[in-house]
């Protein structure tokens, strides 16, 4: 039987200055939940990409805004959710980006969503009462 453990939460300003802090928060708990180093690295990068997307796209780099990060785990899975109140984002498409084409057009970005899907087992986007949630799960 899956046994629930405590959930954890931090609230951080929507600023890239806090990326390292967010990565550490998530990586420490992922390690404590029993994941191997490479799986912890996957979760850390997925959360980095999701948080960066919120800062840039949901909040348009407005540092006055904040992001809630919640996580929890049991003996079957680890989940982490990021909540914001900015512009909603629900990518319908998450094909592998064509890096060759992007390079040609000197474009960057637009690869985070694909990475998140690759790194995590399940990704859900939801908007309720102007609160956007991205919830990502990795199975044990």
């Amino acid at each position: 039987m899956a046994k629930s453990t405590a959930t954890y939460k931090i609230t951080v300003p929507a600023s890239t200055e806090h990326l390292a802090e967010v990565r550490s928060f998530v990586a420490d708990h992922a390690t404590n939940s029993g994941f191997k180093e490479n799986e912890v690295a996957d979760i850390r990068l997925a959360v980095d990409e999701a948080y960066t997307n919120i800062i840039k796209h949901a909040y348009n780099n407005d540092k006055q805004k904040s992001v809630d990060i919640e996580l929890g785990y049991d003996n079957t899975e680890f989940w982490v959710a990021l909540l914001d109140t900015g512009d909603a984002f629900d990518p319908q498409r998450y094909d592998k980006p064509d890096i060759r084409q992007k390079i040609k057009e000197k474009k960057r970005g637009g690869v985070g969503v694909y990475l998140i899907r690759k790194l995590m087992d399940a990704v859900e986007y939801q908007t309720d009462d102007a609160v956007n949630t991205i919830r990502m799960t990795k199975k044990k």
């Binding site: 990409e49 390079i103 970005g109």
Partner: peptide, 16 residues
């Protein structure tokens, strides 16, 4: 460690 923002720098300048 590298995130996609880091990869983006290489993507933006390699053509030049």
């Amino acid at each position: 460690y590298i995130a996609s923002a880091g990869l983006g720098v290489f993507m933006a300048y390699i053509e030049d």
